[in-house]
């Protein structure tokens, strides 16, 4: 499979979860496991551009597919992309454990809906649990990123 455009190969047991493959085999630990049963959204990655729970997909199923993770977002080692920067500026994270999954969800969401209302953002965020922020600043940050991306 390709992760963030880079080919990653490995021979694995069929039962290995995609999340574990990304974390252990590819060494990309920005994708976190928060529940391993598809509720919390911390493990969200993009499979062929669409956000999915990587704890509910086996690694073998991603054979030949494109996977995008949080590590692929920033344009360089010394910068953040627009959405990441907006999270930083709006205090949209505290402990930061859920943040990668939320960024992957919202990144795809803004591609599909470049100019969402706060209500639409709130609804699109429903599949990602955050225990620290109360969500409000995340919604503000996504809206800020939308403004910047649209101008």
């Amino acid at each position: 499979m390709k992760i963030n455009g880079r080919a990653v190969e490995g021979e694995v047991e069929p039962r290995l979860l995609l999340a574990d493959f990304i974390r252990d085999n590819a060494g990309l630990t920005g994708t976190h496991l928060g529940c391993e049963h598809g509720v919390c959204g911390a493990c969200t990655v993009q499979l062929d551009g669409h956000p999915v729970r990587s704890c509910l997909i086996f690694a073998v199923q991603a054979h030949g597919h494109q996977v995008a993770t949080v590590e692929g977002m920033a344009p360089s080692d010394s910068s953040l992309n627009t959405l990441q920067q907006a999270f930083h500026e709006c205090h949209a994270l505290q402990c930061g454990f859920c943040t990668p999954g939320i960024l992957m969800t919202m990144d795809a969401f803004l591609r599909e809906e470049p100019d969402p209302t706060p209500e639409r953002i709130r609804s699109a965020l429903g599949g990602n649990l955050c225990r620290c922020t109360g969500y409000q600043n995340i919604i503000t940050a996504v809206r800020l990123a939308a403004d910047r991306l649209n101008c």
Partner: peptide, 21 residues
Amino acid sequence: TSPLRKEDWPLVRGEGTFIAD
């Protein structure tokens, strides 16, 4: 004042080190 947090940079880049990492 409310300066930008010192903690955020690695966390938004997926470069945090949580125990499972």
